[in-house]
């Protein structure tokens, strides 16, 4: 950091943990697992009008191995469930999951034989976004909440021996 008065290089103090969190929260690579209606609102949110890129989470990766954040957008049926779990397992740590829309949160209005009643029965979830479908403002709000969570989280960066 340059100093205001004389332009010399100054310094800031922080903990390594919060710096890591700061770095991670603004470089969220996302994997949108789009299945249903909410995908339309996701497209709106990601495009120029609402522009998720302003918040450092616009970079979409279509392979789970390069992504940090899994957005489960839409209904997950029992046929789709093994696919979702495979995708989640393929992501590298650290990873976060967002349940996007009522169907992903709880099954929504589809309380029947074909639909999984909430994706938290398959994979762990960090942030739930309500709405059928959620408005883009809600999406942005939820993702900022996720960023706050990442900032506060304890990141494991020290070398740790494997527990045998």
């Amino acid at each position: 950091m340059k100093h205001k008065k004389d332009g010399k290089v100054g310094f800031i103090t922080t903990t390594f943990n919060s710096m890591l969190g700061w770095g991670r929260k603004f470089s969220l690579y996302q994997y949108p697992f789009i299945t249903a209606c909410c995908g339309m609102e996701y497209m709106s949110a990601a495009c120029a009008h609402y522009d998720l890129d302003r918040f450092g989470m616009g970079w979409t990766r279509f392979t789970p191995r390069q992504a940090d954040m899994l957005l489960v957008v839409g209904t997950i049926s029992h046929k789709e469930a093994p696919v979702l779990r495979t995708v989640y397992d393929q992501m590298t740590e650290p990873k976060w999951v967002v349940a996007f829309g009522a169907c992903a949160v709880s099954g929504g209005i589809y309380d029947n034989y074909a639909v999984v009643q909430g994706i938290d029965r398959i994979i762990p979830v960090d942030v739930y976004i309500p709405g059928c479908p959620p408005r883009p403002e809600t999406i942005i709000n939820a993702l900022i909440k996720l960023q706050e969570k990442i900032q506060k989280e304890g990141h494991e960066w020290r070398f740790q021996k494997k527990k045998s």
Partner: peptide
């Protein structure tokens, strides 16, 4: 066969174990 009238609406048959 799910659309038969005698199939219950909420009888699920998961493919993988759910938590």
């Amino acid at each position: 066969h799910p659309l038969r009238k005698d199939y219950p609406l909420r009888k699920q048959q998961p493919k993988i174990d759910l938590r």
